[in-house]
Nucleic acid binder design. Structure first.
Lengths: 342, 342
DNA sequence: AATAATTTCACAAAAAGTTGCACAAAGATT
DNA sequence: AATCTTTGTGCAACTTTTTGTGAAATTATT
């Protein structure tokens, strides 16, 4: 039924010989309107295919049923999966989703958050870009009474805010433990940008495990700044070392994959010469030339938890907002063992 | 700095001893307001950190600077990349993006489109779910004066609407051609759902190439309904055939990858026994056990073109909307040759 | 039957901006 | 000096919905 569009409560009121206010209340099941009238209104609304105008509604009530989510990059599988899960939960609760990407850029990120605040979204979920550390988003948001939840990449003063993360310390620890179990004694690390807590924690877990296992720590075996595809360079550096590591914990899968590729092209055997464990469990890890051991971070859970915390903050907004403690959800990880470290 | 929030044009007007209308016009650089006044208004607006309320603006003008995009699944790399590119262009033109996913479900898709229309987005980009064919979105949208552009997955009567696609016929054709060049003479096909034009076209291109090259067409070698990970079953079926194909054009990478994996585990050699070419050029194709030949579909271009067509439709809305011919943008593809078909 | 209590609904204001029209002041023309 | 333009502002209406208040209609009480 392609209605002409534009059916307002005034149209309904006119046809019923009543007023807009009555129609509005009737549609809200306001007990001040008689049941008879309520039914008549709803009946007509259905017939005329009436849709309340969300813009006007938003203007009057200040609630728009829209959530905002900001990620470094939409096209990274990790974030796309989280968004997907987040969106599913949001949709179930009647929220639309506005997605913004920061392109790993602090300025674009700030602009995105501001735009969302300006748009008066009901809540914001955000994963910080690598070089955003001390951000003022929580203040900005709380000034406008908009709940904010951080996931995966959190600010340094994360204790004060709601967060959903993995136990990155334990991930680092577990990686070393597994490499140790298979016989590695000289373990190196491809580390992510040390501006981000998640990468710092992975590194610290790695260090702690070395310590607990009484393994040597070689500064040289820590190759920092692994972003996307710098695994190639890292591998070359390792090949030139006098004493090479025999196991590597890479803070990301992509660098692990390109490093493995390079090692193999240079004649090394994985995992015999060097064992490798990555993080993220990218979709095709299982089908690689050497299937890559990696940590499943249960992204779906991250997305779902983030959405449900955010929504519950929105709902319970009036009650006890200031009093509540921030929640810090830790989503469990799972080491998927494949040839690269067996 | 952190204003209390809520500064309206009325506040500005009051402080300046003028009225809201003058402030509104001054901020819009309306020439009917003297330069002096304009400057004074803008100056004060800056000082008070005034932000125009987009909701009120939208209510009055009907334009909200928001675009909607609907995809089957956000977490498929193909769509995520397109969204990413789309978003970049939209952002540059000052548009926010609302993203919805249909989960390959026609009902959810319809609900999403309706929600976007209701929210009065300025334009909609959509890639249909596999089983949406005859959809009424264009009518719905044009009734509400919202431009709509289809990308990748288009409706069957696509001629009437703006579309951005690849030349799927040619992709099918080129795949066969390449397999032929490397010596394959018994070429099979993993086909996608035949409800979608893109897959139909790939199949038709495949058929036409067989014909032009005077190759046999074996019904048995066409394995239909490849969605995500059914490559395993397809491979098993092929292994049981009396006469096996020696080359396969798979309409998607994932099925090609799992099929390759299965073949190899059963002792066949790729490409010696069977050569394979996929479609989509997934991120890790190059690092697979056997690197997979695949078609780069230039997703970034798809996203960018879709956004710019949509935006130009929005802008040129008043002028000649009905008169304009729909545009059908074809984004070029590129066969990336890797071991699986060399 | 008259007053009180309750129910039902209409009016108008409010949310924050935009815009057509009218009107005043200044400048130009005769 | 009187009339006509031009320029700059203000008033009020408009977008659609929600909601406080108060009036009318209905029912109950004595």
């Amino acid at each position: 039924m392609g209605e002409k569009s534009k059916v307002t409560i005034y149209d309904l009121a006119q046809k019923l010989g009543t007023t807009a206010s009555t129609v509005s209340r009737a549609l809200q099941d306001n007990p001040r309107i008689s049941l008879k009238t309520r039914e008549a209104v709803k009946q007509l609304a259905r017939e005329l295919n009436y849709i309340p105008d969300p813009i006007a509604h938003h203007l009057r009530t200040g609630k728009g049923n829209v959530l905002g989510i900001v990620v470094p990059r939409i096209d990274r599988n990790f974030f796309a999966t989280i968004i997907s899960a987040f969106q599913a939960v949001a949709q179930k609760s009647g929220y639309q989703l506005i997605i913004a990407q920061s392109n790993e850029n602090a300025d674009e990120e700030a602009a995105a958050v501001r735009a969302l605040v300006q748009k008066k979204v009901d809540g914001i979920a955000i994963s910080l870009s690598v070089n955003s550390q001390n951000v003022d988003y929580p203040e900005l948001c709380s000034a406008h009474n908009i709940p904010i939840v951080f996931f995966d990449r959190t600010p340094s003063d994360f204790q004060n805010y709601d967060t959903v993360t993995n136990d990155n310390f334990q991930i680092g620890y577990d990686a070393v433990l597994q490499l140790y179990k298979r016989g590695c004694r000289k373990i190196g690390h491809f580390s992510g940008p040390m501006t981000q807590r998640s990468y710092i924690d992975r590194y610290r877990g790695f260090r702690k495990a070395l310590e607990d296992l009484h393994l040597d720590y070689h500064q040289e075996w820590i190759i920092p700044g692994i972003t996307e595809a710098t695994g190639y360079d890292a591998a070359l550096r390792i090949l030139q070392m006098n004493e090479r590591p025999d196991g590597i914990f890479s803070a990301g899968d992509f660098s692990a994959i390109t490093a493995m590729d390079t090692f193999m092209k240079k004649g090394l055997s994985i995992p015999r010469d060097i064992a490798i464990i990555g993080v993220a469990n990218e979709p095709l890890d299982a089908y690689l030339a050497t299937p890559l051991s990696s940590f499943n971070l249960h992204r779906h859970q991250i997305g779902e938890m983030t959405a449900s915390i955010l929504i519950s903050r929105i709902k319970g907004d009036d009650d006890n907002q200031e009093l509540e403690q921030p929640s810090h959800i830790i989503v469990k990880h799972e080491l998927i063992l494949r040839d690269s470290s067996i």
